[in-house]
């Protein structure tokens, strides 16, 4: 019965939009430009990403959405020809600053990749990997982190009896949730997700989407997706990228019901892309 009649507190929360805009920013980009050699991939990006929200990044292939999300934890620098200009301010610090070590940044900003990429180790060792590299050796602490992270990624019940089995024996959807749990184990502030469900079947996709909804209570999530319905279902804000530019960035409801720019409307109504 409680499912049909909503408690008063829930109704109150629904009136929140005005409060939401007062949330602190996790990321602010300032005239961010990025080049692959001579290819200008990101052009003057100015985005303000708030904490405890799901921010979706949508756009057609090659629009720079994956490039953008990989710039946020500087993973893009593994490609040698990349040059950047402008600033990305993460919690009041410019991540391009020489003093900012990427190792430090990436401990606060976790990432989940397009293709599930667990290590060829046991499930336990996969989750314990992050804490171990950051110096946690105590077995009991590690056990607790592993359980907490697996619970956080809603996969504890499925794997608790086979923590010592190789993670490669799991299904694709389970592997992706293991990767999310592995990311939670470093207790990040932000989680970047680069098309996390594109290699998964619909049921696994649904599980990951539910998970994202739960995770935003504790984490800020930035998710790249080429699935517009997914963006509409799970995100609070949506940024529409086209040819390396941000065409529109607004509340997801607004983008999908009443976009300002014609190109956004064309894209979300399926006229191109």
């Amino acid at each position: 019965m409680t499912t049909t009649i909503k408690p008063a507190s829930d109704v109150l929360e629904k009136k929140e939009p005005a409060v939401k805009s007062n949330k602190a920013s996790v990321y602010k980009t300032n005239q961010l430009n990025l080049w692959y050699g001579s290819n200008h991939a990101l052009k003057n990006i100015d985005l303000d990403i708030k904490e405890n929200e799901v921010t979706a990044i949508i756009g057609p292939s090659g629009c720079g959405k994956s490039t953008f999300i990989k710039t946020l934890n500087r993973m893009i620098e593994t490609i040698p020809s990349v040059k950047t200009s402008g600033e990305i301010i993460y919690r009041d610090r410019n991540i391009f600053s020489k003093k900012y070590q990427v190792e430090e940044l990436r401990t606060k900003v976790g990432m989940v990749f397009q293709k599930p990429n667990p290590f060829p180790k046991s499930i336990y060792e996969n989750i314990a990997y992050g804490p171990r590299i950051h110096g946690i050796k105590n077995k009991k602490t590690l056990d607790e982190i592993v359980e907490k992270s697996l619970r956080g990624a809603a996969i504890w019940d499925e794997v608790k009896d086979r923590l010592n089995e190789n993670a490669y024996g799991l299904s694709g959807g389970q592997q992706q949730r293991i990767c999310i749990a592995r990311c939670l184990a470093i207790e990040p502030d932000v989680i970047l997700m680069d098309e996390p469900t594109s290699a998964l079947d619909p049921i696994s996709t649904l599980k990951v989407e539910e998970l994202v909804q739960n995770l935003k209570k504790e984490y800020s999530i930035i998710i790249v997706t080429h699935n517009m319905q997914q963006a509409a279902r799970i995100s609070d804000k949506t940024a529409f990228f086209l040819n390396g530019e941000v065409v529109e960035y607004d509340e997801t409801n607004k983008i999908f019901s009443n976009p300002t720019d014609d190109r956004t409307e064309d894209y979300i109504s399926g006229r191109f892309g």
Partner: peptide, 27 residues
Amino acid sequence: VPNELREASFAMGATKWQTILRVVLPA
């Protein structure tokens, strides 16, 4: 050794040496 494994390790804040020692060499 697939590059995705290195990426996974770097994305958690591991240094190159930690990645080599714990991911690349075992594989």
